[in-house]
């Protein structure tokens, strides 16, 4: 009984693997459908040769570049928008108008403006990361208890110091929410950007995990390679998420 309970989590993943194996064995060889063991072997090769880690790292670098730039901009702009009503009122319509535009839709423009290299990808990532970041910055700054700001003022503390000692820590939990969402969409967008750059620019030398997937798709027609890349994408997404959470736990000791 107890054993059955403990085995519950493995039932569906195991079933999935078995189905996959059976389907691959049924399929015609021309379909090039890999069995799970093929994927494992390919994965091992790609990790051992350093190709997969390198591609993931390249993509991650672009994500960090785009994220850092747009997070800095969103932080400054969002704080100004939340703290000064005229700024917020006038910029809000513009931000709300751009927010529904899917980042990938701007890729063609980015290619026109920046070519098919890192800047275009970083632009898409920055655009994608900007909105969760600014929305949560504004929300965080606005949700600070005004009583705390009054308390600091009655202690004779100046405006800039209040910004640093009250507003920033007060908004920090929301900033982390924003960062987690922003990095999530940024990671998704970089893959789309690299895939599309690969697809449309005819496999340029831009690198990254999306590019690698495209090469497996279009040139070497290697399904197990694609699946390995997908797993790599998932693992990095998970690591980013857990990393931000750990940082949050460490930097916000008063919420534990």
């Amino acid at each position: 009984m107890n054993l059955a309970l403990r085995l519950r989590p493995f039932v569906l993943p195991a079933l999935l693997l078995i189905l996959w194996q059976l389907a691959a064995m049924q399929a015609a060889p021309a379909d090039r459908m890999p069995v799970p063991a093929d994927v494992l072997a390919t994965g091992w090769t790609l990790i051992a040769s350093g190709e997969l880690p390198l591609a993931l790292l390249q993509s991650l670098q672009r994500v960090m570049l785009g994220f850092a730039t747009s997070a800095a901009l969103a932080l400054v702009l969002g704080t100004a928008m939340a703290a000064y009503r005229p700024v917020g009122r006038n910029l809000d319509p513009i931000i709300e108008s751009f927010r529904p535009i899917a980042p990938i839709a701007l890729l063609p423009l980015a290619i026109l403006w920046f070519g098919t290299g890192t800047p275009a990808a970083a632009f898409i990532v920055g655009y994608a990361a900007f909105f969760p970041m600014i929305v949560n910055t504004i929300h965080g700054v606005r949700s600070i208890d005004p009583g705390l700001i009054r308390a600091a003022r009655t202690l004779g503390v100046g405006r800039l110091t209040i910004l640093r000692t009250v507003v920033l820590p007060g908004a920090l939990p929301n900033l982390f929410v924003g960062a987690r969402l922003a990095l999530g969409v940024a990671w998704t967008s970089i893959i789309a950007a690299e895939l599309a750059v690969g697809a449309k620019a005819g496999g340029g030398a831009s690198g990254g995990i999306g590019q690698m997937m495209f090469v497996f798709y279009a040139y070497s027609v290697d399904l197990s390679g694609i699946i390995v890349c997908m797993i790599g994408v998932g693992v990095v997404a998970l690591l980013i998420d857990r990393g931000v959470r750990a940082l949050e736990y460490w930097m916000i000791p008063w919420k534990r």
Binding site: P9, L12, P13, I191, L195, V233, A237
Partner: peptide, 19 residues
């Protein structure tokens, strides 16, 4: 039973499934 499968698949974004 279902949650582990969801947590396995969720980090792989839809876009990564395109190829």
């Amino acid at each position: 039973m279902v949650d582990p499968l969801i947590e396995l698949l969720r980090p792989i974004s839809g876009i990564a499934w395109i190829p």
